[in-house]
Write a protein that binds this DNA or RNA. Structure first.
Lengths: 195, 195
DNA sequence: AACAAAGGTTAACACTGTTAAGTAAACAGT
DNA sequence: ACTGTTTACTTAACAGTGTTAACCTTTGTT
């Protein structure tokens, strides 16, 4: 059973150091001092292995977010903290973040629905915060879950543009993230004092 | 020279119908009634071919956006039209949209910088609209280009969550996009009348 | 007629994911 | 102590991959 963990570790190393295209069964096996076929004793196929890696990464992200949650803080501050934690995680562990969104679902129809529930719990972390804001009438929200997804999606977009190096070189990263976070949050807040 | 176009067309067909993993040089060649090596007469390698496909898709997206631009319309309406046109394009041509963001830059360091300039022109389409809003003091903007990227990123995130089937099944797609567009735009607008 | 370029081809190399079949060691039951 | 079975792995093979070097034809030019 130790080999399973070894395979996961080696796979992740290769993925991070050498890139996705270099992550072949034989290469993984070689670095784990077994043959490629041994991997199939612990994973149904390559997709299944990839899935396990995705799961790990999702958990890491979830933990990074969980760490930053502080119910004592002001509501808007909480939203901002989470957004920034998310962005920081993605920029600090770009490969790990990429893994999460790497699966092209059309090519992986076997992707088990229930696996996504672990991501869901992260959404619900955010939805919880939003619900509180709603109670305090600080925020204009219909369904907190939808709002959580909306915020999530927007942040993911911001991050993904940066990770894919799609950002104009003339734009400083920090200014971009600052403005993005600012706008995303403002999109939800009820502004009581017009500028 | 006609073969080059034939290859592009066949490649796109395979990519859309059979998925990325099935898009092999030999399969493309077979369907174009040539041998795989012939492709190398027109494209340096597979990445180069993929790049050409990306370029095509970007242009299609750009055209879809261009169609919707109408300077006669109200500024906020223009923003919304563009956002909706973008989302519609992505949802109507998911594979084509995916192609645009398919490149994993780490694995494709040869990606020529200047190619991105064509995307840039699309950003500048958006930046132009934003500039007008700034002049009219309808919008709170520092640098229109940054804002254009921010909006773009947010919309991309929204779209990408849906395309990757990451959206909670309990959430109706339309409600999600409506709310997303609403919030993204509101994040930029100076609200004069608090609710 | 001779030469060169254009537009292809065949054969091969070193890889890929995956499967069927085999092996060798550890353990369990009688 | 002899079976039988399970566990953990290996070897060999299949069909496919991207890519290159070398080789043909056909076409056009001088």
């Amino acid at each position: 059973m130790a080999l399973r963990e070894e395979i996961l570790e080696v796979s992740k190393d290769i993925l991070i150091q050498d890139g996705f295209s270099k992550m072949s069964m034989r290469r993984i096996a070689r670095r784990a001092n077994v043959t490629a076929t041994s991997i199939y004793l612990y994973f149904k196929n390559k997709d299944d292995l990839l899935l396990a890696l995705i799961e790990e990464s999702i958990n890491d992200l979830k933990n990074a977010l969980q760490e930053v949650v502080d119910p004592g803080k002001d509501f808007i501050q909480q939203l901002e903290d989470m957004a920034r934690a998310y962005i920081r995680f993605a920029l600090d562990h770009p490969k790990e973040y990429e893994i999460i969104y790497m699966v092209r679902p059309e090519e992986m129809p076997k992707y088990p629905r229930e696996k996504f529930n672990e991501v869901r719990s992260a959404y619900e972390l955010l939805a919880g915060i939003i619900s509180k804001g709603k109670e305090q009438n600080l925020i204009e929200v219909d369904d907190p879950l939808i709002s959580a997804y909306t915020i999530w999606a927007q942040i993911h977009g911001v991050v993904s543009v940066m990770l894919n190096k799609r950002l104009d070189t003339r734009i400083p990263r920090e200014k971009f993230t600052d403005q993005a976070v600012d706008h995303i949050i403002k999109g939800f807040i009820i502004q009581k004092t017009p500028a």
